[in-house]
Design a protein around this nucleic acid. Structure first.
Lengths: 246, 246
DNA sequence: GCATATTTGTCCGTATGTATA
DNA sequence: CTATACATACGGACAAATATG
């Protein structure tokens, strides 16, 4: 399985600064949180490290060091691992440890298939929507637009994803929301292995705006059609980027 | 992993007269399993107890006794709890313990909404399906029919659910399969609350047969339409039964 | 191919806090 | 309100598997 990554062969030996900086971020984050269970807290912290790209796809996640950094016991940390592995953000390999998964092209296809079904269906079922509900969508869109001006393409990406999360949220379906949260998390993983932020996110600001305007005019069916094409194009672009990496 | 269980349910003849014998069943089951992690093994066992109705919705699941019955440590069992709570088969209540959830009418509505979207979409995307792929559907259907003759309505129910699991399996989408597995598990919970097996399962044998025959004739769109109506009717019937219980 | 070091898998004992009788 | 039971969490220990030299 010695496929891609590992593009920095020179190292392996120490250099505490670079590879340990996300461990420091974990330790810092650990102080902020409040109540709830320790395992969930640890899972929240780890999730953030992964989705924000400090823990890259393919990385090993060692129990011992991470337990120390997050200041929880190994047992508690393992509960957090189980949580995250069920979300698709970690994978267990028996007696080898936990890893951040590396999605494949097949995963991209599968994931987009589900996105198309769910998101388009949500839009088609919005008859009689209160227009106040669209406020979070607009906020996410403006977040992306501001980030684009600043040239922060990663932040454009999170804005776009937030747009789609709020979009499916319009359906008021806890289960659809849960599935979407998982899909978005996996999507972030994919973005991190491609690492061409601008080409990946910038074109979709305008298209999200178009969808939002259709929704504001109550043209839900048209919005769904536009979204369908949007998702086909996005999938195609990601697959192309994938091939250029491998 | 989350495959479809094999037979040998030993079929719990009578429906009466035992409260704690599921603890014994856990201990018995614990001996059978082979490799894999202890946590996953414990989760498999517990999942079976829940979906087969020996652990009823609303039950408390005490970690100490269960750890003894399954012969695993409490730490390991807690990992299994986390797994199952993410599948919707258990819920955590902070400092109170773990419980088998009691789905509400709102859950039924939400769940059926997702079922309709996913299952119907799968059927509409089956152009050019190899007819061999339908064999498991027929097997599940015949399982239901045989159980109906024997008057074992619970088994009719598992046959019907297996039919639908294989149906979505035709899409070859791991993520759709995973979501469906979760939905089916929750559905079983609901059936166990209502406990009117015959009225709930018997009418759908014929309808599953109708869907299968449409599929065998390549009429995927018609099958999807039939399935859509099927799911609407099923939801309505469950909601009615729900109201008569509460 | 072998011996060793490291890491995971699992269990136990125990201390603390929370909910309930 | 106190007492008890139980969940939460920790740290140590050992076996088993893997990775390394």
């Amino acid at each position: 399985m010695t496929t891609i990554n590992e593009a920095t062969p020179s190292s392996t030996g120490g250099a505490a600064g670079r590879e340990a900086d996300w461990l420091g971020a974990v330790a810092a984050e650990a102080a902020l949180f409040g109540p709830s269970s320790s395992a969930e807290r640890a899972a929240d912290i780890l999730r953030k490290q992964i989705t924000e790209g400090r823990l890259r796809p393919g990385s090993r996640v060692p129990e011992k060091e991470l337990a120390a950094a997050a200041k929880v016991s190994r047992n508690t940390l393992r509960e957090a691992f189980r949580l995250l592995s069920h979300e698709g953000l970690l994978v267990y390999e028996m007696h080898r440890g936990v890893f951040v998964p590396q999605p494949t092209e097949a995963d991209v296809v599968d994931l987009y298939r589900l996105r198309r079904v769910l998101e388009c269906d949500v839009l088609r079922g919005l008859e009689g929507l209160d227009s106040d509900r669209l406020v979070p969508l607009r906020a996410a869109l403006e977040h992306s637009e501001a980030a684009a001006v600043a040239g922060d393409w990663a932040e454009v990406g999170t804005g776009n994803m937030r747009f789609h999360e709020h979009l499916v949220g319009l359906a008021d379906s806890p289960r659809i929301n849960a599935v979407t949260a998982r899909l978005v998390a996996e999507l972030r993983l994919i973005f991190h292995i491609i690492a061409q932020p601008q080409e990946l996110h910038e074109p979709y600001i305008a298209r999200n705006r178009a969808i939002l305007e259709l929704l504001e005019n109550g043209r839900y069916g048209d919005a769904a059609d536009e979204l369908h094409q949007y998702l086909l194009d996005s999938e195609e672009r990601i697959l192309a980027a994938f091939r250029s990496v491998s």
